[in-house]
Amino acid sequence: MSVVRIEGVSKRFGNVTALEDIDVSIAEGEFVSLIGPSGCGKSTLLRIIGDLIQPTDGNVVVNGKPARKARIDRDYGIVFQDPVLYDWRTVAKNVALPLEMARWSRQKRAARVREMLELVELTGFEDHRPWQLSGGMQQRVSIARALSFDPALLLMDEPFGALDEMTRERLNMEVLRIWEQSGSTIVFVTHSIAEAVFLSTRVVVMSARPGRITSVIPIDLPQPRTASTREEPRFFELVTQVREALHLGSDLDRTAPAPETQEATA
């Protein structure tokens, strides 16, 4: 059964068409990356899956039910592009927020928060306020918060965008480990081609204005992925394939107004 099924989804903001005619189906246990130029509607698509905004057209089914029902059942965890932490809560209490909402007991919450902060290497920062952390640390708090309640579906919007390469690679491995252990489904937005190829079972390439899916590239690298995966020839082939698909999308963009410019110069 597919965990996420998107059928003919379009989204317009006023006269800006953010998404046009999106069709994707994501099966249980898949790790799907969305990649595309800035402004092509990746965040918008993630919000639509999470029922945080409504599509103008089309239909979204999550876990076999309407997206709204899935949200109310707390079927997914989301990492926003901005960390979205509450200044009036300490780091520990920010991580505990979804657990509070799910009515976990105080002891269970404390234990899980400790575990999650250890995972993102923020032990010792429990009592800090979000504004006392660096951007990358804030982003890690937000990752810890999303992972804390073991959601079966994880929506992650450039979760590692603000991190250094070392931390990023370590957290890549952590996410893969969590994904393998829990059998969760992950939809992951990134700007890094290598990251998308390394992590995913499928890469969805999008183009801008209007946001469209230009190609879907299955990643047939062996599981589990390890540090040596990045050195395999097949890895480089796939990176090249995704890069070319991205350029194809932007070339289409560029060739469209070309006749006009020729006329102008003639």
Binding site: R71, P98, M101
Partner: peptide, 15 residues
Amino acid sequence: QDLELMHSYAAGQVA
């Protein structure tokens, strides 16, 4: 975005 986060947890008005 602060409200959006709460909506993602299906939070009610009181929360």
